[in-house]
Design a protein around this nucleic acid. Structure first.
Lengths: 350, 350
DNA sequence: CTGAAAGCGCTTACAG
DNA sequence: CTGAAAGCGCTTACAG
């Protein structure tokens, strides 16, 4: 009963022929645009159905100039913040009919450049990028002529002509330190995830990403003088083992801190691991607050206090902002969302 | 110094004109195929550079019939197994010049159908799917004529004409239970992540995904008779809170088990949370083994014993298999990789 | 409401 | 080694 047009997939022409209409009419009936009688529409749909027709989105995109695809360039999809954000991005985008191309950079600027290039060539309608650098951003400013709409996620860069959706990490870090002080802590350590670093170092590297900068500065500003000499501060690569090494160093200082702020999931796990190794009990001997409410944080014993950022909101907001910019290329707006401090058993009052 | 062809992005014609060659020659020089003199190639590349030319992959794909894009349809990108696999998929694919379109189904078969349809319409060159059902698979068998190469990841389905890359979960579950018995455990509970279930139930639901089936059957087969009545078995939705409820029920049985096997990350966290709530000490009062070596597992106190599946290998294998199938449509092969039991402090010898 | 024609930006044979 | 022509499968004006 099928009309197999030889062997190849059915095309618009096949449908049009079978329905005895022109290509234009068939396209209108199938695409749901323009005008068609109910009768002809039905005829076309029946034909399409019989031939098991699938529109070729490549052709449609080329002709219409819209690919219905959004490119997402992210530091590390295995990190819980990013994959939760991507989940929200996929959700929001597919609700609006857009699909997502995801690339991973591991915070490598060269890979980011390549990613943006590939996505541009694939003619994505828009781009969501977690930039690996605050200053190396020429490739984001459209080396090309008609620029692809772009929204930065999680981090801003050193220019005022690129919109972003971020959380207020300065305030969040500041608030966490203040809360520790309120509870009597005066010796406070800081473990900062910093992709730009090989292993871990005590001093702030030159070029760091905005989140690193904000979290460090926010924490430092609130820090009691006794904690500002940097003995309890380390900037570490974003993996658990390195973080653990760095935390060990901090915790083995002559006067060790009574509390540590960890700036992401990996740093938090590193601190916990180091504390376990040294037999230091979290919650009683050492208090800890971490950025991002990873799924395991509240299940730990004691549960870990966290700075909960509105991850889903950040992701879906980035998409919605991007969609608006795609409609109106002059539209400009940026968002900085508040994070929430969630205190749990990992912090003790002194 | 630029030659802005009005306002639009430079196209192949613009480059050809500036380089004073035909479109075909320009295409050959830029695309790196066919024959061109070094001299003309340089001229073309210089022109392309001056015009900041970016090839339109949409057009290239349409003409060449290859989109250099692979579709990935996954249950939940926020789950650590899946996002680690996706990371490997992106890595392997981009090494071969392919980009990844990711869709999320939450194990909903309707969404899976929609995802496959969209990706087919976007003319992906291949498809990697984590199927939400073992039987509802018509949409995977190419309702269309020339089928898109397909590889299943993590789960097989009830047909022998679709290739897959999975881990040997039956053997893994069996091995874990046997090890518990070897250590003296006779009362062993089982918490099985089952997307098909609303909350949690004690009996195996009708239609479950292959991983659920394999893990359950593997565990059951090794189970001592004392543990087979099902009092300590629950099938739970894949989120921590539901899992925790289910675990609470198991742990509040009159004779509670001395060990529990949890079939994924969420189930493991659920057990830990329930144990914490009841004041049951993991490692001494209750032993636990979990599927998947999530990043937090070894950092817990005590560290959680896990069944470590070769996640990256599964992901990159799926891509390599798919690439081979794309080259040769008759190529058939499937892989079942071994998992490794990693014993840590969460399991005690009785 | 429907159709004939042109064209999106490339690549693919086919000549030369 | 290079070019002229055709065509991938659609949509977009433009007529009627």
């Amino acid at each position: 009963m099928e009309h197999p047009p030889n062997d190849r997939a059915a095309t618009l022409v096949d449908v049009a022929k079978l329905a005895k209409v022109s290509r234009a009419t068939a396209a209108r009936a199938l695409g749901g645009y323009g005008l068609v009688t109910d009768a002809t529409r039905e005829r076309v749909l029946a034909a399409a159905n019989e031939l098991n027709y699938r529109v070729n989105e490549l052709a449609r995109s080329m002709r219409s100039g819209r690919s219905l695809t959004i490119g997402v360039v992210v530091a590390d999809i295995a990190n819980s913040f990013f994959n939760t954000a991507i989940r929200a991005i996929i959700e929001t985008a597919s609700g609006a009919g857009y699909q997502i191309l995801v690339l991973n950079t591991d915070d490598d600027i060269e890979r980011e450049r390549g990613a943006v290039r590939v996505l541009t060539e694939k003619r994505v309608d828009g781009l969501i990028v977690v930039p690996a650098s605050r200053t190396d951003i020429a490739h984001l400013k459209g080396g090309g002529d008609p620029e692809v709409p772009l929204v930065l996620l999680d981090r801003y860069v050193d220019t005022d002509d690129i919109d972003y959706v971020i959380s207020d990490d300065f305030a969040a870090a500041q608030g966490a330190i203040q809360e520790l002080e309120r509870l009597g802590h005066t010796k406070i350590g800081l473990l900062v995830a910093t992709a730009q670093v090989r292993e871990y170092i005590p001093a702030l590297p030159d070029a760091v990403v905005s989140t690193v900068h904000e979290r460090y500065c926010g924490a430092l500003e609130a820090m009691p003088h006794s904690s500002r000499n940097g003995a309890w501060v380390r900037f570490s690569r974003g993996n658990v083992d390195t973080a653990s090494q760095a935390a060990l160093e901090i915790l083995q200082e002559e006067y060790r801190p009574t509390a540590i702020l960890a700036t992401n999931e990996e740093m938090a796990l590193g601190v916990v691991q180091a504390a376990n190794n040294l037999g230091i009990a979290i919650g009683s001997d050492l208090s800890i607050i971490a950025f991002d409410d990873a799924p395991w944080a509240r299940v730990f014993n004691p549960p870990i206090s966290v700075i909960r950022r509105p991850v889903e909101a950040l992701g879906s907001m980035a998409v919605r902002l991007l969609l608006r910019k795609m409609e109106d290329s002059t539209f400009r707006e940026s968002f900085k969302l508040k994070a929430e401090l969630v205190m749990r058993g990992s912090v003790r009052q002194l």
